[in-house]
Amino acid sequence: MLDLFRTRLMQGTPTSEFPDRDVSLPARFRGRPTLSRDDTGAAIGAPARDLPSGLVRADSRALPVLDLGACLFSPEEATAAPGCQVAFSQDYRMATGTRNDLITPTGQVELARALNQQMRRVFGRSLRLRSVAAGSCSGCEAELVALNNVVFDMARFGIQFVASPRHADGIVITGAVSRNMRAALECTYAAIADPRLVIAVGACAISGGPFTGSPEVLNGVPDSIPVDLWVPGCPPHPLTTLDGLLRLLGRL
């Protein structure tokens, strides 16, 4: 028993100071990507061709823009080409309310806005989520599990993962949605009572991630399931997800 107390004292209070204070991440951390482009020289061809992901794409004027939903946050995606330079910032905040908000000419994104007042009254102080992995590598789930540890401690905001969709207010989807998991995903979604939230976590759930184009996956959450929060990352840092959830609930 004494050992138990002694170990407890040794552990101290490791809970993250987020969101009261800014949390700094190591210098090499690859957070929200940024793009500096020279509007006169539209050099979309070179970087897009050399990138291992769909991070850089052309907008309607054939100028390069970033698609954070397709970003794999690999060091190779930080490239420089004439008129177009992609880099990673250390900003972990990048969850958005619409798929379109993830597409940006500079890397700046419109972060997720709070739900309307009625939804906030229902979910604002108590949100129960059901996690469904559908064709993932399990990296995103590992970071969702980390949200429950004493450092990130998501429960202090009244957010918890629950065992059944019948107990849940929303669903967190990870993975590129494999053909073998599609039916189970749709059943789980259908089992959650309205009003319900849908949160797509990670590059796979948003765009297919590294598996984009494989005949075995649907390249992310199908249109039949409307998404309320898009959390980019490969996998998203726990703070990216937590920041997005708190913004959605109007707590930030």
């Binding site: 064709g135 590598c137 993975g175 494999s178 073998n180 590294p210 598996f211 494989s214 996956v217």
Partner: peptide
Amino acid sequence: LGYQHRGVERL
């Protein structure tokens, strides 16, 4: 199993 099958080897 097979729910997580993404076609890794082909990729």
